[in-house]
Computed example of a mutant assay.
Amino acid sequence: MVENRPFLTFLTHLVLIAGVVIVAFPVYVAFIASTRTREVLVGGMIPLLPGGHLIENYTEVLSASSAANGLPSYTLMALNSLCMALIITCGKIAISILSAFAIVYFRFRFRLLAFWIIFITLMLPVEVRIIPTYKVVADLGMLNSYPGLTVPLIASATATFLFRQFFMTVPDELMEAARVDGSGPLKFFRDILLPLSRTNIAALCVILFIYGWIQYLWPLLVTTDPGYYTLMMGLKRMVAVQDGEVQWHLVMAGAILAMLPPVLVVILMQRLFIRGLTETEK
């Protein structure tokens, strides 16, 4: 029996609305700042209503003439961030699902040991091993390149663990039926496991795309060529002005534009993302 308690319902919605306001208000302020002029923002008081310079500011950010402090065009930095995010996402998914498939469905010595070695790497993120990783990347001549930006970030113990846990819930009867039909391991993987893993892959794609998109420390370390700058690096350099005042209206416009790809990915894959995180029975 579900009790109808109007006060608790009202209180719950009030808390949710307050949480949304707290999270969304900084984004709203950034959008307002991106529609104003620099003179208005440096005055110390930011209006709460949009200004009339939205098209002008966003056009200036997207144009090549807005490059400053040795920065390339905003479009090139956005393309670099997009390539980095897509390569990391596809690489992590491919390696993780294949490694999980091997650990679950192949019987070889030290199978569990291999899994736990992969799992233990969760305690060694890039920030912890950044110096030896940089040394290896530099020795291989991968600085200022897409492989240097992406390859060290591709391995994912989290995704491997999630795929392993899902594969362990797949009934053994499916594997036996595929074997009776003459299907080999790759055919079983392609025709049965991949379709069943669709929601899990979608959920991980959203998480991993955002992970790759917002990377700052590693690209900052391995990239000195402006042609490989990412958006996160570009926004930081737009703020770090040596002489003169920061063009805050352009910085805010660039930040709003940088938010759009992750937001679009979440919106477009929202249904599969939620199903991939909440489904327990396959």
Rank of each mutant, 00 (worst) to 15 (best):
R237K: 15
I210F: 08
A203T: 13
L217H: 06
Y216S: 00
V222M: 08
L220M: 13
Y216F: 14
K236L: 15
Y216T: 00
L208G: 00
T224V: 09
L208W: 07
L221I: 14
V222N: 01
I207D: 09
F209W: 10
M238H: 04
R237V: 06
L231R: 03
M233E: 13
G212P: 02
L220N: 12
M233G: 11
V206A: 00
C205N: 07
V206N: 00
F209T: 01
L204N: 02
L221P: 06
L217D: 09
Q215H: 00
Y211W: 14
K236E: 15
Y228D: 06
T224D: 14
Q215N: 11
Q215I: 07
K236V: 15
T224Q: 15
L204D: 05
Q215M: 04
C205A: 14
P219D: 10
M233P: 09
G227A: 14
T223F: 11
L231N: 13
T230V: 13
K236F: 08
D225Y: 02
I210S: 11
C205Y: 03
L217M: 11
M238A: 12
C205F: 14
L208A: 10
L221T: 13
D225H: 09
V222K: 09
A203S: 07
L204G: 01
F209N: 06
Y211L: 10
R237W: 13
Y216P: 00
L208S: 13
Y211H: 12
F209V: 04
L235Y: 06
F209I: 06
Y229Q: 13
T223N: 11
I214S: 10
W213I: 05
P226W: 05
V222L: 01
R237Q: 15
G227R: 13
L208N: 08
L217P: 02
P219F: 08
Y229H: 08
V206W: 04
P219K: 03
L208Y: 12
Y228W: 07
A203G: 09
D225S: 14
Y216A: 06
L220H: 10
Y229L: 09
Y216I: 02
A203W: 00
T230A: 05
I214L: 12
L208F: 05
Y229P: 03
L204Q: 05
L221W: 05
D225C: 05
T224R: 15
Y211M: 08
I214H: 10
I214W: 03
Y229F: 15
T223H: 05
T223C: 03
G234Q: 06
G227F: 10
I207V: 13
Y229T: 07
F209S: 02
L220D: 12
L235Q: 14
L231Y: 08
I207A: 11
I210Q: 11
V206K: 02
A203P: 00
L235D: 04
R237E: 15
P219L: 02
Y228H: 13
Y211N: 11
Y216D: 00
F209K: 01
C205M: 12
T223P: 04
L204S: 03
G227W: 04
Q215S: 03
A203V: 04
I214A: 07
G234M: 06
M233Q: 15
P226E: 00
D225R: 12
Y216Q: 02
A203Y: 05
W218M: 10
V222T: 09
Y229M: 13
W218D: 02
A203M: 08
T230F: 06
I207E: 10
L208H: 11
P226A: 08
G212I: 06
M232L: 10
T223L: 03
L220Q: 12
F209A: 01
